[in-house]
Every structure is written in C-alpha cells, then in structure tokens.
Computed example of a mutant assay.
Amino acid sequence: MTRISAHELGATEGPFGRGMKVVRPDEVPEGSVVSILRVPPEAKGMRLDRFVQSQLRRTSRTRAQKIIALGAYAPDARRLRGNDRVQPEQLILLWRPPWDEKAPDVTLRILHEDAHLLAVDKPAGIPVHPTARYHQSTVVKLLENARDGERLMLSHRLDRETSGVLLLARTSEADRQVKWQFARGATRPGAQERSVHKEYLAITWGADEEDAFRVEAPLELDPTSRYGVKMRVARPGEGLPSATRCAVLGRRRNPATGRLYALVRCTLETGRQHQIRVHLASRGTPVVGDKLYGPDDELFARGADGLLTDEDRETLELDRHALHAAVLELDHPADEGRRLRVEAPLPPDLADFWASLEDVAASVSAPTDQYIGI
C-alpha cells in the first residue's frame, strides 16, 4: 500500500513535496476527505484505474473507475482519468464526501453481564469497532451510547458478517486476564479443551462424508490475492499451525435444485484469521454466502463496493456468510475456578435458511434443533 497518511501530508492547503501545494478542487465540496496515493517505481506506466484498484484491495475495477471519475486529481487540482499512465513518485488524490453513516436501529441482546464482563449477541453486518468507514454503527459505539458512555474493551473480534457471542471487558484487569487466556492457548489441567473454548456453527455448500473430522492445515496470507485479508492453506512446514474440529449436525438438500448442504459445528483449537472458512473450503465445502472463499472472490470486491448484481445474490444465496459464534467458554477473570459459558442461538436468517431445506439423513452427532434454539 502506498497511501500517505494525514500527518505526512500536513495541512491540506500547505506545501508538500517539491514545492507543490495540494489544492482542493473547486468542484469538490468543502469537508470532503482526501486519500493520497504515491506511485512506487515498479508501477511506472500502469493505467490509473489498475493502480487504484491495486491499492484499494477490496475494490473491483469497476468501482475503481467510478472512484476516479468522481474524485481523482493531481495535487494542483487537475482532473485525472482512468486511462492515464502513472509515473514514479506521482501523487494521486482521491477526494470523497465524508461517509454518510447513521447508527442502525438495533438493540444488542445481552447474553451475560457482571461487574467484570459483558457478552452480547452480535448481529451480522455490524462491525465490532470503529474503522475508516464505520464509526457510529459498531458494537462498541452502540454499547457506549446505550450505557452512558461506559468504557468497554473488546476481548476478541468477530468479522463484520459473522454473528454470535462477543465478549467485552468492563475493567482493565478483566481485559488483561481474558486476553491472556485467548493468547496462551493452553489446556486446563485434566482437560482436553483450550483455555478458551469456542464453537461456531456454519452452513456449508456440500456436506462432508464424515460425521466428525479434524482439519489440521497451516494458514498464511495469500500472496497471489489482491485482497490484503485473504488467507490460504500453506505448504507443509510453512504458515501458522491451525486446527479445527468439525462435526456434521445435519445434512439437507434444496428440493428445487438438488444441492446438498450441511450444518457443521466447528470447535477451534487455534484462532487464526478466517480459519474456519478456509478449513471448510479446503474440504470442498465452503460456507454458504462466503464472498471470499466461495465460488468467486470477485464477489468480495463487489460486495464491499455495494455492486452485487441479482445474479451475484442468487449465487451467494445469503446476504452474508453463514457463520455464527455459538459458544464461548473460559475461566472467569475474577472468580478463580469458575468456568463461564456463554451461548447464542442460531439467528433467524440462518435458521430460516436451514429450515427451507429438506432433511437428507439424521445426524449421528447431535440433534440439529438443539443448536437452532440454544
């Protein structure tokens, strides 16, 4: 990434680089936000739209072209075009209005609360903490607004599209103790579980032939992907050790298409980025609705840009990936010897999707209904 931060730029109207002044173009509204990209030598001669797409890694080329058409300028306020060829050390200014973000009308369901911890049932589609795009519509901000500004500390994270149990600490000591448990990954004396026990429910395209299986496959960032967040299974001896225990709770079929699906309980032995999604995809059973590890990762860029087509939505079947954090269990940070277990039922969007399918065979692992109504 060749983005220049605001502190490097200094004042928007001040001098920058070789005596140049960065000027807000007359047609760009006051209050607009500017992102500044510097072209590295290896990008010499690349089309501007290709370069912008390469830097905004979650963006499709169509979206990159739109960004350029709406607000790409040189520092002297000269308009830039998508077919311009970039030069080394060139500065590209991308102007945009501030995000018009409104806090969602949602009440977070409290799953557990005491003087030290707070656990909520995070809805899909809401990020856990503020980002460049999301500020008001985050779990942390929603809770702060609802609880008179109480300072809460995230003990762990869930992807924006993942629903389920999210734990926050109410004191610095509880935060330190819980994060230590997450970090150490050790087992309790006489037990086989990790110190922090996490179970997820996933609905997959396709169903594994085994009722219970373990995926042990190291993970690494995918260097071939233009998305800076995509993971892949690494070669033996490389990557980060990763393991997931899986149990198929039920198999169902779409009566209209004949397509097979499974409801899978995934128990984490390690906690790598996108671990469950990558491990299931490596078995040939990716998570339903997964834009990154499903049928085509270009869906990820189009989804981030709000450019999904009706055909895309039909392919994905769900607006988000069908992954839900169902169980979180750990040692209570302020009550030695007490084991805290927090559970969240399968949310309506996933439960309704599963209910729309027809049973194939009874599961030998556990009754499906138990997990839909935890």
Results as ranks from 00 to 15, higher is better:
residue 353 F to L: 08
residue 270 T to P: 04
residue 306 G to K: 07
residue 164 G to R: 03
residue 157 R to E: 08
residue 311 E to L: 05
residue 353 F to C: 08
residue 74 A to R: 15
residue 293 Y to I: 06
residue 209 E to H: 15
residue 70 L to T: 04
residue 187 T to C: 14
residue 179 K to H: 12
residue 90 Q to F: 03
residue 70 L to M: 01
residue 54 S to F: 05
residue 118 L to S: 07
residue 193 E to V: 07
residue 106 V to M: 09
residue 217 A to C: 08
residue 97 P to T: 08
residue 308 L to V: 13
residue 240 L to G: 03
residue 44 K to L: 01
residue 318 L to H: 05
residue 122 K to S: 06
residue 81 R to C: 13
residue 283 R to E: 12
residue 360 V to I: 01
residue 109 R to Q: 15
residue 145 N to M: 03
residue 349 D to R: 10
residue 222 D to E: 11
residue 6 A to N: 13
residue 293 Y to K: 12
residue 222 D to G: 12
residue 322 A to L: 02
residue 51 F to D: 04
residue 365 S to Y: 03
residue 251 R to A: 10
residue 58 R to T: 05
residue 252 R to F: 10
residue 299 L to Q: 00
residue 83 N to S: 14
residue 248 V to K: 06
residue 79 R to S: 10
residue 129 H to R: 05
residue 25 P to T: 03
residue 290 D to L: 09
residue 176 R to G: 05
residue 261 Y to T: 06
residue 108 L to W: 12
residue 185 G to C: 07
residue 178 V to L: 15
residue 19 G to F: 04
residue 261 Y to I: 09
residue 324 H to I: 11
residue 265 R to N: 12
residue 289 G to S: 07
residue 104 P to R: 03
residue 122 K to E: 04
residue 312 D to K: 09
residue 34 V to G: 00
residue 144 E to L: 04
residue 165 V to Y: 02
residue 217 A to V: 06
residue 341 R to T: 14
residue 71 G to I: 05
residue 70 L to C: 02
residue 148 D to A: 10
residue 97 P to G: 11
residue 164 G to Q: 00
residue 356 S to E: 09
residue 374 I to G: 10
residue 258 G to Y: 11
residue 365 S to M: 00
residue 203 I to C: 10
residue 358 E to L: 09
residue 58 R to K: 07
residue 191 A to S: 14
residue 118 L to V: 08
residue 249 L to H: 02
residue 191 A to I: 07
residue 184 R to K: 11
residue 52 V to G: 06
residue 70 L to P: 00
residue 176 R to P: 03
residue 156 H to V: 05
residue 55 Q to E: 14
residue 338 R to E: 15
residue 104 P to Q: 09
residue 352 D to I: 02
residue 276 I to R: 07
residue 294 G to C: 11
residue 32 S to Q: 02
residue 361 A to P: 00
residue 18 R to N: 12
residue 277 R to S: 12
residue 266 C to M: 08
residue 106 V to S: 03
residue 71 G to E: 01
residue 206 G to P: 10
residue 363 S to C: 04
residue 91 L to W: 15
residue 199 E to F: 04
residue 261 Y to D: 11
residue 238 E to V: 07
residue 303 G to T: 03
residue 257 T to P: 12
residue 333 P to V: 05
residue 157 R to M: 02
residue 3 R to A: 13
residue 366 A to N: 02
residue 232 R to H: 08
residue 2 T to D: 12
residue 82 G to D: 10
residue 371 Y to Q: 00
residue 123 P to M: 10
residue 21 K to R: 15
residue 127 P to W: 02
residue 12 T to D: 10
residue 16 F to N: 03
residue 295 P to D: 08
residue 235 R to V: 07
residue 257 T to G: 14
residue 76 D to S: 00
residue 110 I to K: 04
residue 286 P to L: 09
residue 230 K to E: 14
residue 198 K to N: 12
residue 166 L to N: 01
residue 315 T to L: 15
residue 48 L to D: 01
residue 50 R to K: 14
residue 151 R to Y: 02
residue 82 G to I: 04
residue 195 S to N: 14
residue 256 A to I: 13
